[in-house]
Amino acid sequence: MRDIHPFLSKSQWLRKEIFDMVIRTQKGHIPSCYSCSEIVLALCYGGMIRFDAKNPRSKNRDSLIVSKGHAAMVLYPILADLGFYPKEELLKFTNPNGILRMYADHTIPGIEAICGSLGHGFTIAAGYALAAKRDGRDSKSYVIVSDGECYEGSVWETAMFASHYELDNLITVVDRNGLCILSETEKCVKLNPLEDKWKAFGWNVINVNGHSYTDIFRGFDDLVKNKNKKPTVIISKSVKGKGISFMENKVEWHNKMPNAEQVGKARENLEKNCIIN
């Protein structure tokens, strides 16, 4: 049984770091980062991803692409903490003399590819998986896509492609927070039954509670057990804005900035651990 306590404090740390960066610069998408924080932390600190911070493009690394580019910030404090770049870069977020910006790109150490337009990172990640397969490398390609991103037709082109080419080294997380910019996905153009769609395209599907480390690591254990040559999608049921009560599940907070009073309230929230297990 894995000790999840260190991860609980990481959750709190990551949310605070992101919040500080956004409030300082008035730029960024807090709720989209918070819905995928736990699964990204579990991937980065849970021994799932092999990386070399001093040699970010080393041949035998595993890759992680946050294809939902508006949540690029979820990686920024983590990459600094892991030594890809100095922590001072977090203070220089969006500054002309800093390397970090709202949407990430390949010029930032630890970032594999430019993302921001939905659907690209997922397919590029499939290209990574294919390259590793053809090279005979055992590198894995992890990619985080949003549920709204699944509206992009190219996602399903690649879903078909990855299944045909047996890219079992492609692990896709769908951050199923249920919201896009204007409304709930099921009220806009419904995505359900999402699990059936992925299965029909030839993928293994693992469902996890995106805010439970116990469940996420259970999902990772299931992932490792899969030996059927299929790519795997982890559908991570999550809450957009998780951790700040008034932002949770509220579409209007996609890229809205809190006022001074709300900032105070949010900081109170962030002092408490919002993850239960």
Binding site: A113, G119, H120, T123, I124, A125, A126, G127, Y128, A129, L130, A131, G153, S154, E157, T158, M160, F161
Partner: peptide
């Protein structure tokens, strides 16, 4: 699937 092809090539 040309969109797929371009980004696979990028990868």
């Amino acid at each position: 699937s040309e969109q797929n092809m371009v980004d696979i090539a990028a990868g």
